[in-house]
């Protein structure tokens, strides 16, 4: 239960897992929040803002757990905002900017389904994470409902909507598997029951799920096995560097201020 009870090897691997999950939620949350005020319809302004708020809330809770594991004096805000862009460990899928509406929906579909497979792989080995994940999974149900409704709408619309959506899925497909790249120290996480299955198994069930959603819509995309975490979660794009500049601008304007 306590952090002290973790052996160093497991602790390091757990910190890596928490950082991957937190950075993923943080980056997609911020990126989706860019739609506030400019979404195609009013309901989507509200929906994207609410989704972004959920994701940022999940990121915050995960950074708080990470702060406890690291115990180096950094709090959740310091972990979220006080790093150089190279130090972020979000998956390459989220290095793609929000693009047009079709790209945003395609990215949400690929990310939400992969994230669901990852959340379903978290075991009872470290109770603080197991408890948080139990809560997060109840909220993600509504995210899935939202993205599946839009997937259907764009794919069945035909014309420009469908062709943009298919093009976006194809453009994102090579990077989509990075969300479920093997974790560093995965053996230790499995041994401790923090993970219940290797990321390769989570990825296999995710690929089957995506095929089950897109197949009936007449869409096929190729999802390969991801490279290891080091390569899947580093070397970030220009789009991300721009986003990083935006999301850290207020924090950097007055370091250490209490807002």
């Amino acid at each position: 239960m306590t952090i002290a009870a973790l052996d160093p090897r497991t602790g390091t691997a757990l910190a890596g897992l928490l950082l991957s999950m937190a950075d993923d939620e943080f980056v997609i949350g911020f990126s989706d929040s860019e739609w506030t005020g400019i979404a195609p319809i009013l309901e989507e302004d509200v929906a994207m803002s609410s989704l972004a708020q959920d994701e940022l809330g999940h990121a915050r809770a995960l950074y708080e757990l990470l702060a406890g594991v690291l115990g180096d004096g950094r709090d959740a805000d310091a972990l979220a905002y006080d790093r150089e862009p190279e130090a972020y460990r979000h998956a390459r899928l989220l290095d793609h900017g929000r693009g047009d509406w079709a790209t945003t929906i395609a990215r949400r579909l690929l990310y939400e389904t992969a994230d669901a497979a990852r959340l379903a792989s978290i075991g009872e080995g470290w109770p603080p994470l197991a408890e948080l994940v139990a809560k997060i999974r109840r909220e993600e149900r509504y995210h899935v409902m939202h993205v599946l409704a839009w997937t259907d709408r764009l794919a069945r619309a035909g014309g420009d909507a469908r062709s943009r959506f298919v093009a976006a899925l194809e453009a994102l497909a090579p990077d989509a598997p990075t969300v479920l790249a093997a974790q560093e120290g995965e053996a230790a996480l499995l041994e401790a029951g923090i993970l219940t299955r290797p990321m390769t198994s989570a990825a296999a069930s995710w690929r089957a799920e995506v095929a089950g959603i897109l197949g009936p819509l007449g869409i096929t995309i190729a999802l390969e096995q991801a490279a290891d975490t080091a390569r899947s979660r580093s070397g970030h794009s220009r789009d991300f560097r721009w986003l990083w500049g935006e999301l850290t601008s207020v924090r950097r304007s007055d370091p250490g201020a209490t807002w």
Binding site: E43, V46, S50, D54, E139, Y142, H146
Partner: peptide, 27 residues
């Protein structure tokens, strides 16, 4: 809409009395 004015609520419309209303999400 699944998403309403706060994280915990969705938007509904009643066809009988023609009122929009908010429903709490089931979580």
């Amino acid at each position: 809409s699944v998403f309403g004015p706060t994280q915990c609520r969705s938007l509904f419309y009643c066809r009988a009395c023609r009122q929009p209303f908010e429903a709490f999400k089931l979580v």
